[in-house]
């Protein structure tokens, strides 16, 4: 496998100049008061773990147009950008309050499908989310993040990608993040082959970005 020095951004994502600074951007209706320029809206890596992974040149394998299952969509900050460049995007979020904002983001995005469901219980949405999705993006702040990824593996195509942001403080506030990450990787390797990991420290404290594919 060739090692690219700089990962290509997916089609539909670009670097665009906002007020003199180069920033990641996608095209769509603004969602969270981000700067816009024409059709482009800035993608803030400080508010989005996937944004941070792209900003850090991780090889996400995203090309644009994929079918996506997004776990932990919250108020739709990141998933709105994903829906801007991807294909059908299923957004799962468990908390009712942020989902109200997610609904607003989905209003103008006909291929963004909001679901008020618990990512730890895939059988409650397996009747809606199709099999063999190309990408699972996971950003859930609960204990057992590796288990959530394993449980949802059934949705992922054999050559699909898991893009996971692990939050150390959700697993155990008192432990050293590095130790938590080691445990998560260990558990995750029961169902996934880990391709790349990177600390997201520059944008998100105590987070680890992981790119993996099903084993």
């Amino acid at each position: 496998m060739e090692v690219p020095t700089m990962s290509e951004l997916p089609t539909g994502v670009t670097r665009h100049t906002f007020d003199g600074t180069d920033r990641l951007a996608t095209r769509g209706e603004p969602v969270y008061g981000e700067p816009t320029d024409g059709a482009w809206r800035a993608w803030n890596p400080n508010r989005s773990k996937l944004g941070a992974m792209l900003e850090l040149d991780m090889d996400t394998g995203l090309a644009g147009g994929e079918t996506v299952l997004y776990l932990g969509a919250a108020s739709g900050t990141t998933v709105s950008h994903v829906a801007d460049f991807a294909g059908p995007t299923y957004a799962v979020e468990f908390a009712a309050r942020p989902v109200r904002d997610l609904l607003d983001a989905a209003e103008s995005r006909p291929r963004l499908f909001p679901l008020l469901k618990d990512a730890r219980k895939p059988e409650t949405y397996a009747h809606v989310v199709e099999s063999d999705v190309d990408v699972i993006v996971q950003d859930v702040a609960t204990r057992g993040q590796a288990r959530v990824a394993l449980e949802n593996r059934r949705f992922l195509a054999d050559d699909g990608r898991l893009l996971l942001a692990v939050k150390a403080r959700s697993e155990d506030v008192t432990r050293e993040p590095a130790a938590v990450f080691a445990d998560v990787r260990e558990e995750l390797s029961g169902g996934y082959e880990i391709l790349e990991t990177e600390r997201l420290e520059a944008y998100h404290a105590d987070h680890l970005g992981i790119v993996a594919r099903p084993r």
Binding site: P88, R97, V99, P110, F113, P114, L116
Partner: peptide
Amino acid sequence: YYDAVHEATMAATRAAVTERE
């Protein structure tokens, strides 16, 4: 089909959120 999924998930999720809130 995807139009139907959008319609159905929007309505379902809106109703579920309203109910919880």
